[in-house]
C-alpha cells in the first residue's frame, strides 16, 4: 500500500511540474510584457514621459531580460522555496497579499459545495434506482437534464432575480455589511455559512445532476448483480442487502470522480462568483485576466489546479482502500 501511495505521489509531482509549465506559458501569452504594462499602468495620465530606457530599467528590476526558462525557474523557485508568487501590478503589492484570505474563502465554498453535492446526489440517486420507473425517478431524470442544461451562472442570475423581487434581499456577497470588516467570531462564521448556502446550491447544481446520473446508473447495474440475489437467498433483510451490497459499490464511482467534480466546480466558480459578487479566487482570476495582471492569474490558476491534482491523489488512495481489487493490481 505504501508503494502505491508513493507511486501516486510521484505522479502528482510530475503532473504539477507540467501544469506549472503550462501555466507559465499562459502567463507569457498576452502581447507585451510585464514591464510595458507596469509602466503604462504606473505612469499613464501622470504626464511623465516614459522612455524606452525606463522600461528597460523596470525590466531589469524584475529580471524580465532573462530568457524564458530562467524566468520560469525564478518564478517556480520562488513559489516552492519562499511561497512567493510574485508581484501584482494592478494592486501594487505582492500576489500573496492580494490572494490572502480569498484562498480560504474559496476552499470554504468548495468544501460546502462538495458536501452539498454528495449529501443530495447519493441518497437521491440510490432512491431513484431502487424505485425505478416511479414518478420520483422520472422527475429526477427531468431535473438532471435541467441541471445539465441550465448553466450555473444563469441559475445564479435567476436566484438573484428571485431573491430581489420576491424576498427583497440580495443573496450576493459572502458577509453581511456589519461583519465585513469585523474580526472573526462565531457570529461572523455563522454569517459566512448563511451566505455560502446560495453559492453552494448554485455550484452544486450541475455537479449534483451529473452525480445523480452516474450513481443511479451504477446502482441499477449493481442491483442486477448475482451477488445481490445471493445475499437475498441468504435471508439477509432487504434494507441490509441494499446497503451492504449495491450501495457500497455505487459509492466507488463517486469517490473516483472527486477530482473531476472539483475541476468542474472550479471551472464554473469564476463566473458564478462574478454574478454573486463573491470575494474569492475565481472572481479575482477574471479581474486579473481582464487587467492582464498575469502573476496573479498564474498564481490562481496554479492553486486551483493544485487542489484538483491533490483531490485526484486523495480519491485514488481512497478508492484503493474502498476497492480491494485495485491495490492488488498496482501495489
Amino acid at each position: 500500500m505504501l508503494r502505491f501511495i508513493l507511486q501516486r505521489f510521484f505522479g502528482l509531482m510530475v503532473t504539477m511540474f507540467f501544469v506549472s509549465i503550462m501555466v507559465f506559458v499562459i502567463m507569457e501569452l498576452p502581447p507585451g510584457d510585464y514591464a510595458d504594462r507596469y509602466a503604462f499602468r504606473k505612469y499613464s495620465g501622470t504626464g511623465v514621459n516614459v522612455t524606452q530606457g525606463d522600461i528597460e530599467n523596470i525590466r531589469r528590476d524584475f529580471g524580465l531580460h532573462k530568457p524564458a526558462w530562467q524566468r520560469y525557474g525564478d518564478w517556480i523557485g520562488g513559489i516552492i522555496t519562499k511561497f512567493d508568487f510574485g508581484e501584482s501590478f494592478a494592486f501594487e503589492t505582492s500576489v500573496n497579499n492580494v490572494i490572502g484570505k480569498r484562498l480560504w474563502l474559496t476552499l470554504a465554498i468548495l468544501f460546502c459545495t462538495l458536501v452539498l453535492t454528495y449529501l443530495l446526489a447519493i441518497p437521491i440517486a440510490i432512491y431513484a434506482a431502487i424505485r425505478r420507473h416511479s414518478i420520483a425517478d422520472y422527475a429526477l431524470t427531468v431535473f438532471s437534464y435541467l441541471g445539465l442544461a441550465l448553466p450555473n451562472f444563469l441559475l445564479a442570475l435567476l436566484l438573484l432575480y428571485v431573491s430581489v423581487t420576491i424576498f427583497d434581499s440580495s443573496v450576493g456577497g459572502l458577509f453581511s455589511p456589519q461583519y465585513e470588516k469585523a474580526a472573526w467570531s462565531l457570529a461572523k462564521l455563522l454569517d459566512l455559512l448563511k451566505h455560502l448556502v446560495v453559492p453552494a446550491i448554485v455550484l452544486a447544481w450541475s455537479a449534483t445532476a451529473l452525480q445523480i446520473q452516474t450513481v443511479r446508473a451504477t446502482m441499477l447495474d449493481e442491483l442486477n448483480k448475482l451477488s445481490v440475489t445471493a445475499a437475498r437467498a441468504r435471508g439477509i433483510p432487504e434494507w441490509k442487502v441494499l446497503l451492504k451490497y449495491p450501495t457500497r459499490l455505487a459509492i466507488n464511482p463517486v469517490v473516483s470522480t472527486i477530482g473531476f467534480d472539483v475541476n468542474r466546480i472550479f471551472s464554473e466558480l469564476p463566473i458564478v462568483a462574478l454574478v454573486l459578487g463573491l470575494p474569492e479566487l475565481g472572481e479575482l482570476l477574471i479581474q486579473s485576466y481582464l487587467d492582464l495582471d498575469m502573476y496573479v492569474a498564474g498564481a490562481i490558476l496554479l492553486m486551483l489546479t493544485f487542489f484538483i491534482v491533490v483531490m485526484n491523489f486523495i480519491s485514488d488512495i481512497a478508492l484503493a482502500f474502498l476497492d480491494p481489487r485495485i491495490s492488488l493490481q498496482e501495489g
Binding site: V19, V23, I26, N263, R264, I286, A297
Partner: peptide, 12 residues
Amino acid sequence: VIPVIPLYMGLA
C-alpha cells in the same frame, strides 16, 4: 487537469 473555463479565459 486544469479547470476548463479558467484555461479558456487565460487563452482568451
